[in-house]
Amino acid sequence: MCHTLLQVNPIEGFFFGSGKSMVVGGVAVIIIVGLGLWMWRMEKRIQRLDKAATRRSNEANKNPQA
């Protein structure tokens, strides 16, 4: 049965035999590093916006009429 299972899933042999696994591994690494960079930038933006919002909030508290 196991043998039959592998015969109907020839993609396994192709995937590793042809070196495609390297390509998939490379793409996965690029995706995870890309995700990390995106999160890094997003965190920086949020922090910048947070600082700006705090500054505006402080200004509004100082000049309540304005």
Partner: peptide
């Protein structure tokens, strides 16, 4: 720790997809 986390996952993804499977027996028929 953030860079470390991403580096660990990059290592994990690379090894997960590139390390070959060891030999085994399927059937004796």
């Amino acid at each position: 720790w953030k860079i470390g986390g991403i580096a660990l996952l990059a290592y994990v993804f690379w090894t997960t997809f590139t390390v070959p499977l060891g030999p085994g027996l399927l059937e004796f028929r």
